[in-house]
Design a protein around this nucleic acid. Structure first.
Length: 424
RNA sequence: GGAGAGUUGGCAGAGUGGUAAUGCACCGGACUCGAAAUCCGGCGAACCGAUUAAUAUCGGCGCGCAGGUUCAAAUCCUGUACUCUCCUCCA
């Protein structure tokens, strides 16, 4: 949520910045006109309320003295009716204003590449060199199916498309990967959590999924819409602190959690229909940081570098890009994506997304801290995958495949596989 | 799923229709070389609005949340969330 006072003060700035994210400037004008109307109504209503409070006090006095108060009471009847009418109007305007405001994305940070499409992202660095093969490398799902460690057909029978069974060494490899990630995150100072996988509407709103997520049916709802399956552990991790004032000495907070992520993938029909890349349910180790405003940009750097380290330890080559203004998620002010090399497709694919949402989520979720002057301020929240587990498994299968169809296990994962060095 | 009880300020805790007691904590002052204790005074989150360069002042709101009744609601009515206890069920 953007600060309405800031929008009021700098409407042109907001229009310009949000235009970079495909938001029509008329939306800001509309918002401001609701805001002006709302404040007019508040002023009118509150003037009458002050009057009512005063007269009610007098009525109380008269009643206590056993005197007649019917004149004042009658007068107040019409005033109360006016207040009720004004408050009805006010509620209506407020709803409209909130509805517009809830659809405005975060203001992109200044150094974010401006583009109305995903084209134009900036490559920050390239690490490692794409692996050369002396044979034609296979796609990860082909390797997995051949080895009998991934089964998409059975998953389609049991659930539908975009689901998978990991079998035997496949399941063990997945488990090795996320245990490795969690251990590394612990080492880096993240507190491990296990969270609810179903969350209420307020939580989905707090982290900025709702209302858009609901409107585009991007997720899954259960219990008649009371609860949503989490699309990422970012939701329960950030909302853990919702409606709270965090003691400033506890900042920065770093938490991490493994969870399944549930996504309907509405609108991505035909994309990545095979394999582990795009599923309705996948495992992800998520990292969340909560910082004071002045620390969040350094924290984004650190978060990105930590995610990179995971790939480096796994011996996977990747590059880091900064997403364009319109390619970022709704809540982000800046997003660094890590894309890992997939040899069969000979291209980089997203495996982690690290974002600074500044105070955007904190405003929605009311997460504050008290600064040195004792004033309440909104924290900054950051999130990053560390990492997407399924895609990591896919990357390992492709990058560590041998010509005979077997797959070497990356050295750092071998301890997690009882010393096993190869899947064949 | 069923029955009951509860939810008031940072904490404890009164308040059954007249506009949130009191205590602790906190802030300021007095006393003191200083502190503690004591005394005096203040302070009730957050939020919203008006005036303001700002500090600030005034007003609204505010008793889990949302509605309703009333001139007036912490108090009455309806719905709902959460916590606790019991029953049922379950891992």
């Amino acid at each position: 949520m953007l600060d309405i006072k800031m929008i009021r003060q700098k409407p042109d700035f907001v229009k310009e910045k949000l235009a970079q994210r495909n938001v029509k400037p008329e939306m800001i004008d509309e918002l401001l006109s609701f805001d002006a109307k709302r404040r007019d109504l508040i002023l009118e209503s509150e003037t009458l309320k002050a009057q009512r409070n005063e007269v009610s006090d007098q009525i109380g006095q008269l009643k206590r003295n056993k005197e007649d108060a019917s004149e004042a009471i009658n007068k107040m009847k019409s005033v109360s009716q006016q207040i009720k009418d004004l408050d009805d109007q006010l509620r209506e305007v407020e709803e409209k204003q909130t509805s517009v405001a809830a659809h405005l994305p975060n203001i992109p940070a200044t150094e974010v590449p401006v583009s109305l499409t995903e084209e134009g992202s900036e490559e920050l660095r390239k690490v490692g060199t794409p692996k050369e093969f002396s044979f034609q490398p296979k796609e990860h799902y082909e390797i997995g199916e051949n080895l009998g460690i991934l089964n998409f057909e059975r998953a389609a029978k049991v659930s539908g498309s975009r689901f998978v069974y990991y079998v035997g060494d496949g399941a063990r490899l997945e488990r090795a990967v996320y245990n490795f990630f969690l251990d590394q995150n612990n080492k880096a100072g993240f507190t491990e959590m296990l969270t609810p996988y179903m969350v209420n509407e307020a939580s989905m709103y707090g982290t900025g999924q709702f209302p858009k997520f609901k409107e585009t049916k991007a997720g899954y709802e259960v219990d008649d819409g009371e609860l949503s399956l989490i699309p990422t552990a970012e939701v329960p991790l950030v909302n853990y602190y919702r409606d709270e004032v965090i003691p400033s000495e506890q900042l920065p907070i770093s938490v991490t959690a493994l969870s399944p992520a549930f996504r309907s993938e509405a609108g991505s029909a035909g994309k990545d229909t095979k394999g582990l890349i795009r599923l309705h349910q996948f495992n992800k180790v998520e990292m969340v940081k909560i910082t004071k405003p002045e620390d969040s940009w350094d924290a984004l750097e650190a978060l990105t570098h930590h995610a990179e380290e995971l790939l480096q330890l796994l011996g996977l080559s990747y590059h880091v890009i900064t997403l364009t203004t319109s390619d970022m998620s709704f809540t982000a002010a800046r997003t660094n994506d890590l894309e890992v090399w997939f040899p069969a497709q000979a291209r980089y694919r997203e495996i982690s997304s690290c974002s600074n949402t500044t105070d955007f989520q904190a405003r929605r979720a009311h997460i504050q801290y008290r600064d040195d002057d004792g004033k309440l301020k909104f924290v900054h929240t950051l999130n990053g995958s560390g990492l997407a587990v399924g895609r990591t498994v896919a990357a390992i299968l492709e990058n560590y495949q041998n010509e005979d169809g077997s797959v070497n296990i990356p050295e750092v994962l071998q301890p997690y596989m009882n010393g096993q060095t190869i899947i064949k």
